[in-house]
Nucleic acid binder design. Structure first.
Length: 576
RNA sequence: GCGCUCGUAGCUCAAUUGGAUAGAGUACUCGGCUACGAACCGAGCGGUUGCAGGUUCGACUCCUGCCGAGCGCGCCA
């Protein structure tokens, strides 16, 4: 319906161009579903936008646009309002046509091909495999999975990917922490991984020697001493790692692999149970093994973007707008994390996607400039790489902010949250906030008063409709009666029909702007309109035509609630 | 100090991406089940959109400067 109207508007503008009233037809003609029903069904600001070009007042231009509109049975009334908006009042038939479309296209209703099959690589979560996912990661997981669903619905071909940081010092700290729990030392370093899950992994070690790895390590800062001096603490744990590797020999690798396998398996299960699926798990170590990490640095060197200073290799990212240059190879010859990340992004570009999207925690924002710089330096268009930042969720418990740290082991895991509030509530809650909005997550509220979560409000609407339809089947014979949609004429019905007409645009807006919350809010509004309708009208009336018309309407509502919830990764139960 | 992100009702958040009278939930005050599910509905209360300027037909939205919050600024990952 909106498309037809847009076409009519365009024809009118073309006519005005041929009469030299306008110089050209704009690329896009803005047409909004009006939010206030007194403004009709659609509103356009086109006259306001073009008044300067037409050199006349917006109101006058609006009148000319209306005068040049081709005749159409769909438009019953137009009016000029406010500073020059054109409001369109559509015919009842034109408005209720959506009901048939929804029921005919069912689960596919709302889907489109605006994405034109473009391929997208969507990377999200990618938390270091040094511990279980916590509720902070949950936001990225829910957001990423939903964005993937939305993009697919509007015609993109999306691959989801998790970048596994399975190389580097953090992994050695992890392995050494596990070993220290295995030997049950009382000198566990302050900066090791202290979570309970480390004990669980340690229990699975069999047959390794229990050695004292504290000999000859920098003894300045064992637990409880000179904690102020971070440098010594780090040297201390590096010494422990070195001893661990040297004394354990081959057993070190066994423990190292055990630790990462266990944790990664846990992360995979966790995400799968949360309804978050990945097409690829990409290992950082594989970049080292394949030599890509090394050849990438060489390529940068060959193209003159690398210089040496203080024994290290620096990448001149300032040439590409970064605020300072970055080290890629340290003076000890070891590649930095950034070096593998450059290789990783190069590898992504070489896989040939039309678009790449990274979803990062907001704490990584300082990293964007250097990654884009490296992409440009290697001859690729960094515009194909979009980086979306998700703000942290502040957790509150008992009115107090909960500090979260994987190392100290003080965090609420995603699994705990899912068990407490359920997947549906968790998925919905995470996605209800705009991603760049800081969000406060009140654990007590989420856990103890789950009925206040709006997800139940929407699910309840769905269940209510199912219940009505079931009873309709039981009470009345199922002879098919042709509904007469013009009977749907009371206020609640018109509001619902209007709401249903908005779905398709809402889905597109939500997808193209990577804003799942737009869909979430829409669904709540739709459920709200339905609940009002439910309380104002009876569906199972004796008048067969009225009854079947009303049932057709609520069937359509049910379909869209189900479609929308499905995209958000939330179930649409028949009863609850 | 510099940079990024943000600041909207008592609280938690929206606002069709620059549009018309800034809306929901929650809290609080009323009212509605002999009803197709009350996990619901209806009414009320609640605002100088952090502050001050600017841009234009029009600003919560864009620009500038302050104030406040979070994050980042390492040869860590």
């Amino acid at each position: 319906m909106k498309e037809q109207l847009q076409t009519l508007l365009k024809q009118s503008l073309e006519a005005l161009v041929s009469e030299n009233i306008l110089s050209e037809v704009p690329k896009s003609i803005r047409l909004d579903h009006s939010k206030d029903k007194t403004h009709g069904d659609f509103a356009s600001n086109i006259a306001l936008v073009l008044s300067k070009q037409a050199k006349c007042s917006p109101q006058k231009l609006a009148q000319q646009i209306i005068d040049h509109l081709p005749n159409s049975g769909e438009i019953v009334k137009t009016e000029i309002a406010g500073p020059g908006f054109i409001n369109f009042f559509m015919s009842q038939d034109s408005n209720t046509a959506v009901l048939d479309q929804i029921l005919e296209q069912a689960v596919d209703y709302g889907c489109s091909d605006i994405g034109k099959g473009q391929s997208v690589l969507l990377e999200f979560v990618s938390a270091n495999p040094t511990g279980p996912l916590h509720v902070g990661h949950g936001r990225g997981a829910a957001y990423g999975a939903t964005v993937a669903n939305l993009l697919r619905a509007v015609g993109f071909k999306v691959d989801s990917e998790y970048y596994v940081n399975d190389a580097g010092r953090q992994m050695d700290i992890l392995a050494t922490s596990v070993y220290l729990r295995y030997v049950e030392t009382d000198k566990f370093p302050d900066n090791g991984y202290k979570g309970d899950y480390i004990f669980d992994i340690a229990k699975q070690i069999d047959n390794a020697k229990k050695l004292d790895i504290f000999t000859d390590v920098c003894a300045d800062a064992p637990e409880g001493q000179s904690q102020k001096d971070g440098g010594d603490k780090e040297k201390h744990i590096d010494g422990l790692i070195a001893n661990c590797k040297r004394l354990l020999g081959d057993d070190y690798k066994v423990i190292f692999d055990l630790a990462i396998d266990q944790i990664l398996a846990g992360i995979k299960t966790d995400l799968a149970e949360f309804g978050v699926e990945y097409q690829q798990w990409f290992s950082e170590q594989s970049l080292v093994d394949s030599g890509l990490s090394k050849t990438t640095v060489e390529a940068l060197q060959a193209s003159g973007h690398i210089y040496e200073k203080d024994g290290a290799l620096w990448f001149k990212t300032t040439d590409f707008g970064d605020e300072k240059d970055r080290v890629v190879v340290r003076d000890n010859g070891i590649h930095t994390y950034f070096a593998s990340d450059i290789a990783y992004h190069l590898e992504k570009f070489e896989r040939g996607y039309d678009k790449m999207i990274n979803i990062w925690g907001a704490d990584h924002h300082g990293y964007i400039a250097r990654v884009k710089a490296s992409v440009e330096a290697l001859g690729h268009n960094s515009d194909k790489l979009e980086i979306l930042l998700v703000q942290f969720a502040n957790l509150y418990r008992g009115g107090k902010k909960v500090q979260m740290s994987t190392r100290s082991g003080s965090f609420v895991t995603l699994e705990e949250l899912r068990n407490e509030v359920g997947n549906d509530a968790a998925r919905f809650f995470y996605v209800l906030r705009k991603s760049e909005q800081h969000m406060d997550f009140d654990l007590d509220l989420a856990k103890s008063k789950t009925n206040e979560n709006p997800v139940f409000y929407i699910q309840y609407a769905h269940a209510r409709i199912c219940s009505v339809l079931k009873q309709a089947d039981e009470k009345f014979s199922s002879v098919s009666i042709e509904p007469i949609l013009s009977l749907l004429d009371n206020e609640a019905e018109l509001a619902l029909v209007k709401e249903l007409n908005r779905y398709k645009d809402t889905l597109q807006t939500s997808a193209l702007n990577y804003e799942p919350h737009v869909l979430a809010y829409y669904l709540r509004d739709l459920a709200g309109s339905f609940h009002s309708y439910y309380n104002s009208c009876e569906f199972l009336v004796d008048d067969v035509q009225l009854r079947s018309s009303r049932l057709l309407l609520i069937k359509s509502v049910k379909q869209l609630l189900s479609n929308g919830l499905n995209l958000l990764g939330v179930s649409a139960p028949d009863s609850m």
